[in-house]
Design a protein around this nucleic acid. Structure first.
Length: 273
DNA sequence: ACCGGAGCCTGTTAGC
DNA sequence: TGCTAACAGGCTCCGG
């Protein structure tokens, strides 16, 4: 499932083949991909616009165009690649962007959860997102402010995109393990030291994810189809029943806020007061 | 204001 | 062995 490191990896790979290219046509095999506006209007409006940059905000990919901004969310199973048109279509290719240089940008999405937006104002899609966790906007003080009045478990808070942008199930579990905090620990019971540690851990696991080019655990691969390496560096995610690398206790899986959550019962004891 | 849960999807897996 | 049912997951919308 693409989270911040997976999206960042995708953005870096797409920049070179896309920046400066002009979109000449769009084919939508799954109209549900096109968010907010009619697919026909989408096709008309985007035609002829040049992609001037490829950027990321949280888990969203941003494509500033000549007149609009295209925004893509990969959700669960989305995958983007720039390929030669002669390459046979994949079973799950849903939206195809033809480029003036003859190449195609293909949006593959097995589970059809992905979204493509075309907007004048990016804030209409991204407006509620919290700070980017790997920029100076995200400080330990800010995290403390976010957590201090919340009588709620840490895990669902880390997944809340309005609090911090870009963390998903993998990196939430990894960050909590790294910080030695139980996923059900209530946010307002953290000491200053624990908040500092959590802040550091969030940045550490996200940076590791980017360095390893994402976690190929479910369907995620890099645009060129090769796998990332983060799945070989996870401490707890999907390691249920396997020994903790730090203490040897068996990793457990529980549901927190409806989401499957992996943690080490010995390294991450629950200390709610 | 805030929180929990359903719904969106499809392929894989668990259970009968 | 072959079928169905449950499950996974990010986000939006709805109701308490």
């Amino acid at each position: 499932m693409p989270e911040l490191p997976e999206v960042e990896t995708t953005v870096r790979a797409l920049r070179e083949p896309l920046v400066g290219r002009v979109i000449t046509a769009v084919h939508t095999y799954w109209p549900g991909h096109i968010a907010k506006i009619d697919p026909a209007e989408f096709q008309t409006r985007i035609k002829g616009q040049e992609i001037t940059a490829v950027n990321r905000r949280g888990k969203y990919l941003l494509f500033p165009l000549s007149h609009d901004t295209m925004i893509i969310h990969l959700r669960m199973s989305g995958h983007l690649a720039v390929v030669e048109p002669a390459l046979p279509l994949h079973k799950h290719d849903r939206t195809i962007f033809q480029l003036a240089d003859g190449q195609e940008l293909r949006f593959r999405d097995q589970r059809k959860f992905g979204k493509v937006y075309l907007v004048q104002d990016p804030a209409s899609v991204l407006g509620k997102l919290g700070p980017e966790p790997l920029t100076s906007a995200f400080t330990a003080d800010l995290l403390h402010t976010c957590l201090q009045n919340r009588h709620r478990a840490l895990k669902p808070l880390l997944l809340d995109q309005t609090l911090i942008a870009g963390i998903g199930n993998i990196y939430a579990d990894e960050a909590l393990f790294n910080a030695k905090l139980h996923p059900m620990r209530l946010a307002n019971t953290l000491t200053d030291t624990e908040t500092q540690t959590l802040h550091t851990s969030i940045q550490k696991v996200l940076k590791l994810g980017i360095q390893r080019e994402g976690a190929s655990i479910d369907l995620y691969t890099k645009p060129d189809g090769t796998r990332g390496d983060m799945q070989n560096a996870v401490a707890v995610f999907r390691r249920t029943g396997e020994p903790c690398y730090d203490c040897g206790a068996l990793i457990e899986r529980i549901k927190v806020g409806g989401r499957s959550t992996h943690y080490c019962p010995r390294c991450q004891p629950l200390k709610n007061r």
